[in-house]
Nucleic acid binder design. Structure first.
Lengths: 154, 154
DNA sequence: CGCAGATTGTTATGCTGGTAAACAATCAGA
DNA sequence: TCTGATTGTTTACCAGCATAACAATCTGCG
């Protein structure tokens, strides 16, 4: 501690903060999030909307409650997300015969198309951003992040 | 794609989303952030406030603009953070003789103490959360996250 | 059957953590 | 001395959540 404010290469200094996983995780997350937004453009989907669409395409006829559980957010928060996806014409809320409470989320053809297109764009941007890392490093990073997720999501 | 909604072990499925660094980064970040909050308790500092204090302790007499640049946020966003730190008695805005625009951030003794105490608590919680990872894995994760940061923060 | 309790989608409200734009005060340089 | 940049600050705004309540509906139990 107690280095001076004029220190220009603070990033190279072994600070306490710099050793915390959480701090580095957040800083990295901010960068990748900005990259994501750039990938999908100004009127593109946000990360949460893309995630929801992606899961709805992968698990058609999923309900909002199930989707919220998968995304780790509350049901109430999913309403506006599904609203947006429906407005964009990417999926429909359709009534389910057996249970009049739920409305199944059924992706449209447009939705499926938009999903793969967005995925391609995001992957391309992510690859460009992370070209400083080898394929093995990316794989390792993925594995370690999933290890944290396993710990937190049970 | 096009697996069915009844699939219970979706986490084990090699979905498109699950392969994205950004998605896994966010999910992991959410978990570690929750752990951080738990570490510092209900009326404890938020992550941003702790980061600001930590950097102010490390670089005493730093200005708000410099600190904002270090944290990667706007000057305006730092005002309320420094307000809170000043209210908690952890630092003071003091006038600088040479330049009447700036006010140097000077941590108090209490601030320094609170900083190391908070750091200890956060580290302990982080260690407990990440006990599924070896020391080498944690080191690797840190290295890879910093690699992303280098890419994004120049 | 009838009824208690759980579940679903939804609304309203509020919080956190930011950004963007404007502002006066001040400084630096030609 | 004038122009332009910088600093701290206020104000307004937005995204991305959580929480609590609600009616409609389902489920299971006696």
């Amino acid at each position: 501690m107690a280095r001076h404010a004029e220190n220009q290469n603070w990033k190279l200094v072994a600070s306490d903060l710099e050793d915390l996983i959480g701090y580095n995780l957040k800083r990295a997350y901010v960068i990748v999030r900005a990259d994501f937004r750039e990938a999908l453009g100004d009127d593109g989907m946000s990360a949460r909307v893309f995630s929801a669409l992606s899961l709805a395409v992968e698990f058609p006829n999923i309900t909002q409650s199930e989707l919220a559980r998968m995304m780790g957010i509350e049901r109430s928060g999913l309403v506006s997300i599904v609203d947006e996806l429906e407005q964009r014409g990417f999926l429909n809320r359709v009534a389910v015969p057996g249970d009049r409470r739920v409305q199944a989320l059924v992706p449209t053809q447009e939705g499926r198309f938009a999903c793969v297109e967005a995925l391609k764009a995001v992957r391309a941007h992510e690859d460009a951003l992370l070209d400083v890392m080898t394929a093995k490093e990316k794989e390792t990073l993925l594995k370690l992040l999933k290890k944290i997720r396993m710990r937190g999501e049970g």
